[in-house]
Design a binder for these strands. Sequence first.
DNA 1: ATAATGAATGAATATATTTTCATTATAAAA
DNA 2: TTTTATAATGAAAATATATTCATTCATTAT
Lengths: 202, 202
Amino acid sequence: MPRTQEQYEAMRTATRNKIHSAAIKLFAKKGFAAASVKDIAENAGISIGLMYRHYKTKGDLFNELISYAAEGLEAIVTRFQSDESPIELIRQFTLEILDDLNNDDEIAEFYMLMNQSLSMEEPSFQIQDLNKQSDAMLNQTIRLIEKGQKYNQFKQGNASEMAFYFLASIQGLMMIKLTMGERFETPSLKIVTGFLIRDGHD
Amino acid sequence: MPRTQEQYEAMRTATRNKIHSAAIKLFAKKGFAAASVKDIAENAGISIGLMYRHYKTKGDLFNELISYAAEGLEAIVTRFQSDESPIELIRQFTLEILDDLNNDDEIAEFYMLMNQSLSMEEPSFQIQDLNKQSDAMLNQTIRLIEKGQKYNQFKQGNASEMAFYFLASIQGLMMIKLTMGERFETPSLKIVTGFLIRDGHD
DNA sequence: ATAATGAATGAATATATTTTCATTATAAAA
DNA sequence: TTTTATAATGAAAATATATTCATTCATTAT
């Protein structure tokens, strides 16, 4: 008998991870269509053939990443629905985002996938699911802002507009972080939540 | 003799306009690689062959749009360098952006082109020029914020961070506007400039 | 009517990208 | 050293997309 099950398993996991890292980086930076399979394989340091041993098509690989993104987003939506104080929820969420930005986690890349999936024709069911989560995220953000306004933690104003602005600013930060790389400077919590959190509360 | 010079000229201009509208819409929405020539021609209501009578390659068409974007951006950079009051410059600029967003002008589309061109390998000289303008825009925004802080029109804080945040929020609004379409609600000037403009000044 | 001019078409060709698959490499056990 | 199970390779086939070009169409002056 050759290698053990565990050894093979470990090998497969290792190459899968290499593929993931390369793919998310390239899909985020160039978009699904512009990121070629050759590109991804080269970045992952493997052959094209091996890629196809792990994923039936390029689309399947994309879908797997999309479903990770959907999971992450779902967790956030769930937290937004909890009974915690709106101001604390927003603060924690924003801090985590800014932290991930600073630590070069893959958060920016995942956000770019999210965005791409919103304008794809013939979306896979994974993409459809992610899009549902994006929608839920928007709705829960609006709800949370309204709640915070009721508690007088947040500034008054049109909650929908505020939610669009909040999510847009985060999305924009991800985008600029990706395109600028090193030069990017993560703004402070105060700057990012200033439009929302009342002055007494920060 | 057949048609007059002017008539031919008018015909060519008309189809060029059709190509422009279709191309900017599709390039912005799907990205350069994912927007196919067939797509663009169909959207413009013309044949593929006619497209190629007007542009030698798909890249040439993209470059022409990019150079328009660069022109627009250059005008903004120049205005930011004027002697006008920082608070007025920022207000005017932001109002124009928000206005364009409301009127479904092509502004959002142009911003997406800008972003794409920042992460293209082997950039054409048009793309390189646009990227230079993007860089200048960032620098002038930082300068303008510092100036406004000196005049006590703007809130204190790290000017670079504030500039990144400001540009990111605008970029993000464009992006979300494009993906959400009808549902999008343009935030007010107050929301968008709240992090920057001191309370006395609005 | 016909000729002349340039716009417009789309099937054919060239090119690029994705996908397959026959083959090779690797490590462990017999 | 041979066998075995599976990972890994990359050239070839299939597919998709960009580009070319011979042909048709539309309009106007003769």
